[in-house]
Amino acid sequence: MQVSEQDAASEWAARKVGEFLRVRQEQIAQRWADAELFRTVFTVSRDEAVEAGKAVVDALSDVASSGRLDDITAPGFQTVRDQLGRMAASRARTGSTPAQVAGEVAELHQPAVTLLRGEFPDPAGDQAQECALALTVLMGTLRLVVMETTLRQGDELIARQRLQLLEVATPVIKLWDGIVAVPLIGTLDSARSQVVMESLLDAIVAERARYAILDITGVPTVDSLVAQHLMKTVAAARLMGAECIVSGIRPAIAQTIVHLGIDLGTVVTRSSLADALAYALRQQGIVVAPRTPVGANLS
C-alpha cells in the first residue's frame, strides 16, 4: 500500500502545482519578466515579456494537470514549443551556447518555487515539500524541452547551410556556345552528386548545351562509388541529348580506376579541361587555329 499512497501523494502534488500555476500565472510571469532569459529576448517592452511568460506558465499548468511532469512529449508543451524555440534561437544569435540557455531556463525555477511555498501555511511542511518537488521536476522537464528544441534547430540550420554550401561549391560554367562545364572540387558523395546532377542538367537546358564537361581535377580520390555517381550524371545528361566528357583524370586517378577495375564504359575522357574543350569544339566543327602571322605569304 506504501507505493500507491506515494502515487496518490505525487498525483495530488501534480494537480496542486497545476492549480497553483493557473492561479498565480500573472505573478509568476511578472517575476520571470525580470529574469535574464525573458529580459534579454523581449527587449521591446516588459509587457511583451510578461505575455510570453504567461504562455509558458499556461503550458506548464496543462502539463502538471495531466500528471506528466517528467514527459517532454506531453501535449501541454506543444503550444509553447515554437515560442521557446524562437526565444532560444534569439539567445543563440547573441552568442549564448545551448548550455547557457539551459542555465537561464533553470533560473526560472527559484522565483516560482518561492511563490509556491508561500501558498502553504507551513512553507517547510510535507505538503509544501511534495509540491516543490513536483514543480522542480516540471521545471527540469521544461529545460529539456528547450534544449531539445534548440538542438533540433541547430541540426536544421546545419543541414540548410550544408545544402547552401553544396550549391555554392558547384558552379556550372558556360565555356562556349553549347558547351558547359562543372569543375568538381572536393569529395563527391551522394548528396553532392545529386546537386551536381541537378545543376548540370538545368544548365544544359538553360544554355541549350550539346556538351557537358565534368572536370574532376579537384576530386582527391575516385573510388567505385564516385565512379558510379559520375556514370549516373553522364547517363542523365545523355538522356537530355547532351554528351558528357570527364576531364582532369590525373595519372594517379587513372591508375586507381584501372586497379579497381572500374569500367567507365563509353564515357569520353580527357586528361585536362582544355583537351575536353578542344574535343567538344572539334565535334561541333569549330577549329581554333593561331591567327595567320602579319606579313605571311598570302598567296
Binding site: L201, V205, A236, G241
Partner: peptide, 24 residues
C-alpha cells in the same frame, strides 16, 4: 526529356542505351 525525369530514370536503372536523344 525534363531534367527531373532524366535523374529519376537513371536512378531507376533505365538509361535507354539504344535510343538517341535530343534537347528538343
Amino acid at each position: 526529356m525534363r531534367p527531373a525525369v532524366a535523374i529519376t530514370l537513371v536512378e531507376l536503372g533505365l538509361t535507354l542505351p539504344g535510343l538517341p536523344t535530343a534537347l528538343d
